[in-house]
Write a protein that binds this DNA or RNA. Sequence first.
DNA 1: GCGACAG
DNA 2: ATCTTGTCGC
Length: 225
Amino acid sequence: MRVPELDWPATAAQARAEQDRLRPLVRTTGSLPEPLRTVAGLDVAYGDDDRLAAAVVVLDANTLAPVDRATSVGVAAFPYVPGLFAFRELPALLAALAALTTVPDVLVCDGHGLAHPRRFGLACHLGVLLDRPAIGIAKTPLSGRHDPPGRQRGDGSPLLDDGEQFGCALRTRDDVKPVYVSVGHRLDLAAACTLALRLTPRYRLPETTRRADRLCRDALAAASD
DNA sequence: GCGACAG
DNA sequence: ATCTTGTCGC
């Protein structure tokens, strides 16, 4: 798929300014495309000295069978700074997306969307740059507070910041630690949670990120020798 | 000022 | 993220 090429910030201050510039472009409404055909999962694996490999897998939304995939290897574009995570992984992810032969209906990121200190996590950033529906599903919270959700799959508890909900701690398996779902772009939170549950028929983490995780690890290992 | 802090 | 053994449970 076609991806934009952009100049990259050199400092944390520039990166935050870029987030502030793009944040107003986020759209927090929208339901899942009808019909929903494909869903993409994205992830990055790290090696020595900032070497990294990014992977995108595209799954059939109904069967969760893989229909397309792409990887890219390179060097981290930014140090890891909580809240500026996107600047580290985005260039590699965009390179992988550019190698895709299909255009997925929704992008699922391994990280947060609106559940971010400045309301502009990786899923928002990617969604806005590509102007595609996107959501974030993270393994741990970054900002905000929440009560523990009920213990059953499907139970959720709002992620709150100043009494405002900007995400959901969602239980994807009975009696298993919740994941943190938030809107990236062009979808509402209900759609994001519905999709998260569709992607977790068996494990805590969505099939999209599980597949992408394996693929980027393999790509990193293959790039080593 | 002191912790907390996606991956 | 990544470095890592054993161990509990289906």
